[in-house]
């Protein structure tokens, strides 16, 4: 356990003092603050009667003009943050020649990879929570909007989901840093996966869905629903999609289902807000899926790292 603690604190110190942390923090902070600021200037236009109840949460979800919402920033830049903290975790130690020095000390080998993973996760957590708190402070100070308890607990859950989401990208970055010896290769492959999960999977999902259940002009409601279900099934392999659904349900208390079927069901329902536990129930499968994706990715890296031999070059 000692080894894990030492590696953890060393990595934390490295991360928090690193240039990449400061640059990332500045970029995300500037973006989120500007989004909140512009929104606060024109918030009255975006608010409907029902959403006044959750005015605070609305600031995170609605987009102002050409600027996207805060949650879009998190779902878009989150992967980049995770990848940046993970892609050179192991292979840089290898190429600098520090790996054999560290591993020849009396620590278990997994202390190195675990320490790096937890340090990355903690850094991400610190980054996110400070940004959320800054925005909260801005809203309190500039707008005078006071969040209620429910909004705060929803924000808390949003924070947890974001850390897990970015944690997935972190562990994927670490995985590639173990597999590839070159840091540039691991960075590029990580970015490739990010682009795939964020953009290409949308195309692939609709292509496959259209192949399986072709839609034409006189398609029945049933086939449209079926097509949509297949599409959603494929999309949910992507952590980006999972995260977006989680965030929508968490920050928008009236959301209760996704896809075409939600529109059909929704027309029969009253647009009232759900309680927090009910919102959680809506996205529970997505939540578990996201956690599972992160853990599987980390488990694979762990196994490969433990089996990999230190070799004479």
């Amino acid at each position: 356990m000692n080894g894990l603690k030492v590696v953890f604190w060393k990595e934390m110190a490295d991360h928090l003092g690193s240039r990449k942390f400061i640059i990332l923090f500045a970029i995300i902070l500037a973006m989120s603050v500007s989004v909140v600021y512009i929104l606060s200037q024109s918030i009255s236009e975006y608010l409907t009667e029902t959403s006044k109840e959750y005015m605070f949460l609305n600031l995170f979800t609605i987009s102002a003009g050409s600027l996207p919402s805060f949650i879009f920033f998190v779902s878009f830049f989150g992967p980049l943050i995770g990848i940046i903290f993970g892609f050179d975790a192991i292979n840089s130690e290898r190429s600098k020649g520090t790996m054999s020095t560290v591993l020849s000390q009396p620590i278990y080998r997994d202390a190195l990879i675990n320490g790096k993973f937890f340090a990355g996760l903690t850094t991400i957590g610190i980054m996110l929570i400070s940004i959320i708190l800054i925005i909260l402070g801005l809203e309190l100070g500039v707008l005078g909007i006071v969040p209620n308890i429910e909004e705060i607990s929803r924000m808390g859950l949003f924070f947890v989901a974001s850390v897990i989401y970015i944690g997935f990208w972190l562990s994927m970055g670490i995985l590639f840093s173990i597999i590839f010896r070159q840091t540039t290769t691991s960075a590029l492959v990580s970015v490739m996966f990010w682009i795939f999960f964020a953009f290409f999977i949308l195309m692939i999902a609709s292509v496959i869905a259209d192949q399986v259940v072709p839609l034409d002009q006189n398609a029945t409601l049933e086939t449209i629903t079926k097509n949509d279900e297949i599409k959603n099934m494929i999309l949910r392999f992507s952590p980006v999609v999972l995260f977006q659904e989680i965030v929508i349900a968490l920050l928008n208390p009236s959301a209760r289902a996704f896809g075409v079927s939600s529109l059909i069901k929704l027309s029969e329902l009253l647009p009232t807000s759900l309680s927090i536990s009910q919102s959680l129930m809506v996205i529970w499968p997505q939540f578990v899926g996201l956690i599972a994706l992160m853990l599987i990715c980390f488990a694979i890296s762990y196994i490969i790292f433990m089996r990999q031999e230190i070799r004479a070059t």
Partner: peptide, 27 residues
């Protein structure tokens, strides 16, 4: 103790900090 061929250190840390890391890993 092991001194690897082409020993490497954390280049952005000082000599003192590098050695400190090793002593900490050794408890």
């Amino acid at each position: 103790s092991y001194l690897p061929e082409n020993v490497g250190f954390y280049e952005d840390l000082t000599a003192q900090e590098n050695l400190k890391y090793i002593t900490r890993l050794n408890g």
